[in-house]
Structures are given as structure tokens and as C-alpha cells.
Simulated assay, not measured.
Amino acid sequence: MRETTFIKKNLPRWKKYQEEPTEDPDEMAARFTSLLDDLAYAKTFYSFSKVTGYINSLAADIYQRIYGNRQEKDGRFQRFFLYELPLIFRKYHRLLLFTVIFFLLFCIMSAFSAAHDETFVRGVLGDEYVSMTEKNISNGDPFGVYGTGDEFVMFTEIAYNNIYVALSCFIGGIFFGIGTLYILMKNGVMLGAFQYLFFAKGLGLKSVLVIWIHGTLEISSIVITGAAGLVMVSGLIFPGTRKRLDALKKTARDAIKMMICLIPVFLTAAFLEGFVTRHTKMPIALSVSILLLSLVFIVGYFVVYPIHVYHRGFRLDEAGKVIKPVK
């Protein structure tokens, strides 16, 4: 049989196996057997053809499903955070980098505007907040706002606000990403003006040591949430070979998984702001340690570790399941 005839005859079936994976063990076994027959034929007559590699990859995928599912139910939670979630982030690292650059750009623009316009900070943060902060600075307690109120009430309110902002940023992705980009822009402008306010008063380093105890996790999570919102709509804008609706469903699942892991991060940031940041005179070593631990976690888990997992040979199949490297 000619190779073109062989491909034309079997391609619809192969495409079905690839695009419509099944969880039925009998069906998987039947597909695996069928692919082994095709692979044996291809290796015999077209051993150096690309179609042989293609069939081999389909067979390997089903093999991983059959034998990987035996341990699937055990350690599902562990596997999700150790392999599946990092691989999702690795898949969208470029989009995450774009989100970071977009956010930082508006932070820098905001600080630059504040440096050249005395009214800019008040216009962004509000007269009441700026006046209160300036009063606290004159009283020798520039970060006194973090020490007011009950710790638990403050934690609850901050956690609610953080999660609300995150969900708004995420859901904004539905509107072709415009809502997400707007919220990122708004928060970037606020952060730039906020930080400039303290640097202009000679409290830049002190503000970093105090505010970024919780801000490292909080701001990073907002940016990652923005990336998740853009991931969701990316399937609609860039569907690739899939139908737009199918691509949207796929990227929406990935985006929701990205959001799930951020909820405990937001709660931790709220805890730090409610219970820890208020101690503005804590030892510098302790403040730096908390800040660095937060930064190492964010960069480590969302950037470095996903690259490490990918280089170890782990991959995600079309259904989003982890494929282990073949030893």
C-alpha cells in the first residue's frame, strides 16, 4: 500500500483518537491495539517517515493513560501541585511575562507622572488617604494605618477585597482581555503612585521593608491572576487548529486551575497584612526574611520550578493529564 493511501485511510481514526480521548478502559485498550498494528505496518514499510513517529506518539499517549491511571486516584492532590499546575504555568510563561511587563510599565509611568505633577498622587489615591498618610509621617508613624483596628477583622476584610479584585481581574478576561488589562493598569498606576509617595518623603527603603511583607504575595498574585484572565480568552482569540469554542473551553480550564492555587496565596497575604505588617518596628532581619521567602516562593514555584519539571521530560497531553518521561 502506498504511504499516501495508508495515511488517507487511517487519518480520520487517528485524529479521533487524538482529539476525542476516552476514559473507558476497554476502548483505550482497543485503540492501543489498533495503533500497535498501524505502527508495526508503518515501521515495516515507512520506517523513516514522519507518520511512523506520529503513530508512535499516539500509542505512547494511550499507554500512559492505561498504566498511569492505575495510580491516578492515589496522590491526585500531590500530582496536581507537583506536576500538572507547574506544567500549565510553563505553557503560558510568555503570557505571564507579558502581564508582568504590562503591569510594571504602568507602575513606572505612574511614578514618573507623580514626580512631575504634584497633584497626581492625590488624584490617584484620593485626598483623604494622602492627607492621613502625611499626618502619620509628621507624627513619626508613617505606616500607622496598618496598626489600626482588630487583626482578625482586618484580615477578613483584606482577604475579601483581595479575592474580589482577583476574581474581577480574572473574569475581565471574558471581554477579550480588556477588563483584565484595565484592572492591571489601574492597580499598576495605584502602586506606582503609592510607592512614589513614600520615596518622595525619604521613606522608600522603610516602605519596602514594611509594606512588601504582604505586598510581595499580594501584588504578585494580582499579576498572575491577570495572566490567568488572558489565558482564558487566548483560546477564543487564537484557537489554533481547534474550533473557537473548544479552544476556549481548554484555556478556561487551564485558567481556572491557575486561579485555584492563588486563593491560599491571597489568604496568606491577607494574614500577613492583618497580623504581621502592623508591627512596623520589627527587626530588619525578620522583615527581610519574610519578604525574601515570599519572593523565593513566587519566582520559584511559578517560574523556576515549572521550567525544571518541563526539562525533566514531563508533559501534558491533549486532555490535560500529566505524561511521565519515558526512561
Rank of each mutant, 00 (worst) to 15 (best):
R2Q: 12
R2M: 12
E3H: 11
E3W: 10
N10E: 07
Q18I: 08
Q18D: 10
T22S: 09
M28I: 13
A30S: 11
L35P: 00
A42M: 02
K43L: 09
S49N: 05
G68N: 08
N69Q: 10
K73W: 07
G75M: 00
E84L: 12
E84C: 08
Y92P: 07
F106A: 01
I108C: 07
S110F: 01
F112R: 09
A114I: 00
T119D: 11
T119K: 13
R122D: 08
V124E: 05
L125V: 12
S131G: 11
I137E: 11
I137D: 10
G140Y: 03
D141H: 11
F152M: 02
M154F: 07
E157W: 13
F170E: 02
F175L: 15
G177Y: 01
Y182E: 06
A193K: 06
Y196V: 01
G202N: 08
S220K: 03
V231Q: 06
V231S: 00
V231F: 02
M232L: 10
G235E: 14
R244A: 12
A255D: 03
I263N: 05
A269G: 02
F271L: 12
E273N: 05
G274S: 06
G274V: 04
V276C: 05
H279Y: 14
I290C: 06
L291S: 11
L292Q: 08
L295M: 10
L295P: 03
V296D: 09
Y301R: 08
Y301I: 03
V303A: 14
Y305R: 13
E318W: 07
V322S: 04
K324A: 15
K327I: 09
